[in-house]
């Protein structure tokens, strides 16, 4: 019975790791300054925002869903935060808590509509994408500059280790990553997410709390997106309704490149971190070489294709598990025909 081969679960993750290391080494060889710890620290702090949002989205995708509203919620978070502090002069701490609540609220809306009315996640989160973006414009049609001292100190905060500064964003990201990995692997909630992504029907039959978990997953996705938005204000202290337009794609791309299978059930949170790193290194490679930024999108697309093609092929090999078509979630209920 025993066959010696890489466990299928690990193939995408291993591929991600290989790509990430290769990319890092290649970039470093091309631009030696890239190897400096300063650049590495910046790599993390620049991508902390994407990282946090992507970690939240990983749960959603692991559960077999998708969240298109992340980028809009991030933008909404910046708008809300900036307005609350600058216009209404709320204490930043209160503003942060309120912003996180807004994120949770959008997430809850997603989860509730998907769970209670059995709607396709794709459409529901598409609607909230519009909704959150529209709310940004309702708050203000033009960017809101965040100039209060809080935001200045926010941007400078961090751990100074000699010449290297671990920015606040990096630290928060690390915290979120640890919490996420802990939740995914060491709590029943996390395992239920994996189980329902693997086979929702079976998960229900096993008596797992599928419905509750589904809603929670989207709430967490919204929370993470809001937190990502707040952390992004450390780098760019303003709320702009046009922020992060189309970045939901980056988030999903990072998750998929990180080895999470889009049909759900298979993937690792650590993979998502690597996925974001890959995108970040690619970005750096392109900026270091003064290349056209368009290459980022093209290579992202290509990587996405390669990874999804790989997953599709691997998915076909799996015995006993049929491919799920996202469109057919509710259409046909098969009923046992045997006597």
């Amino acid at each position: 019975m025993k066959r010696l081969r890489l466990d299928q679960r690990h193939v995408p993750l291993a591929a991600t790791l290989v790509v990430c290391v290769l990319l890092y080494v290649l970039t470093g060889l091309q631009y030696p300054s890239f190897f400096s710890p300063l650049v590495l620290a910046d790599l993390f702090s620049d991508n902390a925002r994407l990282d946090i949002a992507a970690l939240g989205s990983t749960f959603v995708i692991l559960s077999g869903g998708i969240d298109l509203s992340v980028a809009s919620v991030m933008a909404l978070a910046t708008m809300f935060m900036a307005t609350a502090v600058e216009r209404f002069h709320l204490h930043p701490a209160i503003a942060i808590v309120l912003t996180l609540f807004v994120g949770c609220g959008v997430g809850y809306l997603n989860g509730a509509l998907i769970h209670f009315f059995d709607l396709p996640p794709f459409l529901v989160t598409l609607a909230t994408l519009f909704l959150a973006r529209g709310c940004c414009f309702l708050i203000s049609m033009s960017p809101v500059a965040a100039e209060s001292p809080f935001f200045q100190s926010f941007g400078e905060a961090g751990l100074h280790l000699g010449t290297i500064t671990l920015h606040l964003g990096t630290i928060v990201f690390a915290g979120v990553a640890i919490v996420c990995i802990y939740a995914a692997h060491l709590t029943r909630f996390g395992r239920t997410v994996y189980a329902m992504g693997g086979n929702e029907q079976a998960a229900r039959l096993m008596g797992l709390a599928v419905g509750k978990t589904k809603v929670l997953v989207y709430v967490f996705g919204g929370l993470a997106a809001a937190l990502a938005g707040i952390m992004a204000m450390a780098n760019i202290p303003s709320g702009d309704p046009l922020n992060y337009l189309g970045q939901e794609l980056d988030v999903i791309a990072a998750v998929v490149i990180g080895g999470t299978v889009l049909t759900g059930g298979v993937g690792y949170l650590a993979g998502t971190v690597l996925g974001v790193l890959i995108l970040g290194i690619m970005q750096d490679f392109i900026t270091f070489g003064n290349r056209d930024a368009a290459w980022t999108q093209i290579t992202t697309g290509l990587l996405l294709f390669v990874f999804v093609a790989m997953q599709t092929v691997l998915g076909r090999w799996k015995p006993g598990q049929r491919q799920k078509l996202w469109t057919r979630r509710t259409s046909t209920q098969s009923i046992g025909i045997t006597s």
Binding site: I66, A253, G301, L302, V308, T312, K324, W326
Partner: peptide
């Protein structure tokens, strides 16, 4: 045999 949503996501990005 990719899911349509993912297959077209590739070109949406690229």
């Amino acid at each position: 045999g990719m899911q349509p949503i993912v297959a077209t996501l590739v070109l949406m990005v690229a």
